[in-house]
Computed example of a mutant assay.
Amino acid sequence: MNIEEEIDVDEIFEKIESYFGFVPKIFQVLAEKPATLKAYCEKVETINNDDALPSLTKEFVAIGAASAIGAENCLLTHLKVAEKFGAKQEQLLLAILMGSLIAETDALSKSLRVYENFKEQV
C-alpha cells in the first residue's frame, strides 16, 4: 500500500482549520503530496505545541517575520490568529513595525558595508 493512501488529508485539514480558522493555501497545495503535508504539519504542530513561548508570543514572532520578508498571506493569517488569541491592535502594529525595522536594518547593514568598502577603494 502506498504511504500517500494511508494519510487522512481531511483529518489534517480539520486540525489546521481549528488553529487558523481556515486552511491556508500552502496546506491546500501540499495536500497534493499527503506525506509531505503530514510531515510539514507535524513540524508546525511541534513548534506550536512547544510551551517555551506562549502561543500569542509565537504569533507575534510570526507577524514580525512575515512583515520582514514581505509575506503578505502569512502576515494576514498570523494577524488573524493573534487576534483570536487576544492580541490588541497596538500589539499587532508593533509586531509589524518590529519586523519591518529588522528588515530595514538588515538592508542598511549590508548596503553600508558595501559603501564603506567602496570608500576605501577610492
Rank of each mutant, 00 (worst) to 15 (best):
M98N: 09
I16T: 05
M98H: 09
E45R: 11
Y19V: 12
A62R: 05
A52G: 12
C74P: 00
H78P: 01
D51Y: 07
L93V: 15
L76P: 00
Y40A: 14
L37N: 04
E72F: 06
A95R: 03
E42C: 00
I16G: 02
N49I: 09
A71L: 06
H78T: 06
G99C: 03
V29H: 09
I63F: 03
K38A: 11
L53Y: 10
E45Q: 13
K33W: 06
L37G: 04
V23C: 02
N73E: 14
K84S: 11
K38D: 09
K58W: 05
Y19S: 05
G99I: 02
L53P: 01
F20S: 03
A31S: 15
E104I: 13
Q89F: 04
V81Y: 01
S109N: 14
K80N: 09
F27C: 04
A71N: 09
K80V: 03
F85E: 07
T36E: 14
F60M: 14
F60K: 00
V81D: 00
E42Q: 14
E17N: 09
A103M: 02
A107T: 11
P54G: 15
I47F: 10
F60E: 00
L101W: 08
F85H: 13
L30D: 04
K25W: 07
K38S: 10
F27T: 03
L76H: 10
A52W: 08
A87N: 04
K58T: 05
A35L: 11
G70P: 01
A62F: 01
G70L: 07
K88Q: 14
V23P: 00
V81C: 02
E83Q: 15
K15C: 05
A107D: 09
H78W: 05
K33Q: 13
N49C: 09
D51R: 15
A35S: 15
Y19D: 02
I102C: 04
I63R: 02
D50G: 08
A66L: 04
A52T: 14
D106L: 12
G86C: 08
Q91I: 02
S100G: 15
L108Q: 08
A35V: 09
F22A: 12
T57K: 12
F27V: 05
A52P: 00
S67M: 08
I63A: 03
G86N: 07
G86A: 08
A95T: 03
A68C: 08
V29Y: 11
K84E: 07
K43R: 12
G99A: 06
D50A: 13
S109E: 06
C41V: 11
L94M: 11
L30A: 11
S109D: 06
K80F: 01
L93G: 06
H78G: 05
A66H: 01
N48M: 14
E90T: 12
I102A: 13
Y40V: 15
S67I: 05
L76G: 04
E42H: 03
F22T: 10
I102N: 06
T36N: 07
K43S: 13
L30T: 06
A103E: 04
F85S: 02
L93I: 15
L101T: 15
K58C: 06
L53T: 08
E59F: 03
F22H: 13
Q91D: 10
T105S: 12
